[in-house]
């Protein structure tokens, strides 16, 4: 694989774009198709691509399995936590109006939960990818 310089360079060049695209998809979800879930998938795909090209170990150095596992859990906590926060602020669960006056509350809330989705989906997808890929390497 070491000879395939083009692939390596290509991946290196591509990856930031994919990540940027992912973030675009995430933050532009309000106006066009997309949102946390799709962004998480794309983000995970970027790292999967890097892993395919540079090998699992290299990517796992940048993005340790423990970290992505934590991401998977963290996203759920963010999402459910926002609900708890609104509840503490005197509204019902996930009642975003508690977060700020006017429509801003809804916007903050949606942004927050989408972030939760992003984090979890990213974490889960990378974890699952690591596990399958890792399993394959060890059986060979």
């Amino acid at each position: 694989m070491r000879e395939e310089v083009i692939v390596r360079v290509g991946a290196k060049v591509l990856a930031p774009f994919i990540i940027t695209f992912a973030l675009y998809v995430h933050f532009h979800g309000d106006y066009s198709p997309g949102g946390g879930f799709q962004a998480g998938v794309i983000l995970a795909a970027a790292f999967a691509l890097l892993a395919l090209v540079y090998g699992l170990d290299a990517v796992q150095k940048v993005l340790p399995p423990r970290f992505v596992r934590a991401c998977a859990a963290l996203g759920v906590i963010i999402y459910a936590g926002i609900g708890v926060v609104t509840m503490v602020l005197g509204h019902n669960y996930l009642g975003y109006d508690a977060l700020a006056e006017g429509h801003a509350g809804q916007h903050y809330g949606i942004l927050g939960v989408e972030l939760g989705v992003l984090v979890t989906v990213f974490g889960v997808m990378v974890t699952v990818f690591y596990l399958f890929a890792g399993r394959g390497r060890r059986t060979q």
Partner: peptide, 28 residues
């Protein structure tokens, strides 16, 4: 109510935000 043009996002994250939370949990 929400001031977001993409109705799918409004429904997904707010009106039925709880389903989405469940969905996140399913993924988890």
């Amino acid at each position: 109510e929400i001031e977001i043009p993409n109705v799918v996002t409004s429904v997904l994250a707010s009106y039925r935000g709880y389903d989405t939370m469940g969905e996140t949990t399913v993924v988890f």
